[in-house]
């Protein structure tokens, strides 16, 4: 009986960014230019900081986009910084971002690459 083989990736990090609705497209583009492969975006609703900003909170959209990007542990610093700059996270109310180390991940990896890399 032939055992089936699956490919598991290690050294993966997850970058999650929460930004105002409508920003995700630009951020994903910036992350891709820094080497990210793709991203998952979902919608969310944020509250807390917006209310504490007082009248200026009106300039902040309460509807958010949450962007999940899986990157390699070597890329993570670069992409993290690129997103930071693109999202202007040094401005109040613009959002928050974090990095989570992941144990493993799995997705489609082209067979020829698997062959080359597993040698």
């Amino acid at each position: 009986m032939k055992t089936r083989e699956i490919v598991v990736l290690t050294d993966v990090m997850l970058i999650t960014a929460v930004v105002q609705r409508g920003m995700a497209d630009d951020l994903v583009k910036a992350a891709q230019m820094a080497g990210a492969q793709g991203a998952t975006v979902h919608y969310a609703y944020g509250r807390g900081v917006r209310e504490r900003l007082g009248i200026l909170g009106l300039a902040i959209e309460a509807e958010k986009e949450v962007i999940n990007i899986l990157v390699s542990s070597e890329q993570v610093g670069r992409i993290f910084e690129r997103i930071y700059l693109e999202a202007k996270l040094d401005t109040p109310g613009m959002g928050i971002m974090w990095v989570t180390p992941l144990e493993k991940a799995a997705t489609f990896v082209p067979p020829e690459l698997v062959e080359k890399l597993s040698q």
Partner: peptide, 18 residues
Amino acid sequence: APKIQLRRLDAYRMIRPY
């Protein structure tokens, strides 16, 4: 949680894209 105090620059940066 206290109100967040903003510098003029921050306020400008928030309002401009809005």
